[in-house]
Nucleic acid binder design. Structure first.
Lengths: 177, 177
DNA sequence: TTTTTTATGGACCATACGGTCCCGATAACG
DNA sequence: CGTTATCGGGACCGTATGGTCCATAAAAAA
């Protein structure tokens, strides 16, 4: 999963996977079936873990608004560090495959829906806390936030500076607050 | 360029390129040097053409606001049609390579800067037409618009519906107008 | 017309790819 | 202890990859 996340599907070779996992070829094929199936399982695991983590973060957050703001400002951190600029596996996969592979497209759709749901929950909570008007379309706002997040991560990949990310995050958030 | 745009770098094989161009292998190598060099030239040409077209569209637009609105609403059209969901070559490349290839990273940076510039010009014009407050940071707004556009195109690739694209575009634009 | 440059088709190459298979080691089980 | 199921190392396979080379054909220059 880490490897696919960092390099994408096509650029990750079987040898890369063997080196990273420490498995032999036969073991990897016995366990995962094929490179493609392993990729599918990687996306699925990624989505499960990320959505679970996001829900936990939202639950532990002081407020819905705090959660949303933290999410966007923390993108600036991805400019630096060891796993720098690797983006989001689901969105990376959407970009690499688009709709050319039906199975992958389904997993991507499942992933984006999961992200929509988390952000919609966050928006609803923020509404109930009085920081977002109650008459706003929560689903539309959630999709907007996921879209903006995805754009921000693409900017990181394109080489944007942390300062640009933060100033853009400010504008994104100004739509809500 | 069309092929790289549709399929990305790794997924486009030399045979694909020969078939599409109608050239023989030696001719293609004599003309473009290598697959990698051809890709670089494709990105460069893409950027030049697109930036030129955008500038022309902006000049011909009834207003800066009209230009910006048209840009975002027209993304919904990319859901359907023959060249559906292929996104933007520069952003696709940013996603595929991130910063792993220095030459490519430079071309991506050049591309994004070109997009920033066009949108900054559009924002400035819109300010002078009184539709955006004069005290707004035009560069920051331009980067925001490019970021939002890139996110929107990724949503298209992820399989979003035209309706979702339009409602998200509305929210993106509500930040400015 | 002859010479020199340029362009092109196609054979050829080494290698890296994803994937299969078998046989020996190990571990679980009776 | 003996038997059976599981696991993994590595040889092997066919193919597609990006890339080179050369001999010839066409065109440009002399």
């Amino acid at each position: 999963m880490q490897l696919f996340w960092r390099k994408g599907y096509e650029s990750t070779s079987l040898n890369d996977l063997l080196r990273e996992t420490g498995l032999s070829k036969s073991s990897l094929y016995q366990t995962f079936g094929s490179k493609h199936l392993l990729f599918e399982q990687s996306i699925d695991r990624y989505r499960q873990c990320l959505v679970k983590d996001l829900k936990a973060m939202l639950n532990n957050a002081r407020s819905g608004r705090q959660f949303i703001e933290d999410m966007f400002y923390s993108v600036a951190d991805e400019v630096k560090g060891k796993n720098a600029r690797r983006g989001c596996l689901v969105m990376n996969t959407a970009s690499e495959f688009a709709q050319s592979d039906l199975v992958i497209a389904g997993l991507v759709k499942q992933g984006t829906r999961g992200f929509y749901d988390v952000f919609e929950t966050a928006v609803r909570r923020t509404q109930s806390e009085g920081e977002i008007p109650a008459n706003e379309d929560t689903r539309a706002l959630a999709i907007y936030l996921v879209t903006a997040m995805s754009g921000l991560k693409t900017q990181v990949k394109a080489g944007a500076s942390a300062a640009d990310i933060i100033s853009t995050a400010k504008i994104i958030l100004s739509t809500l607050f």
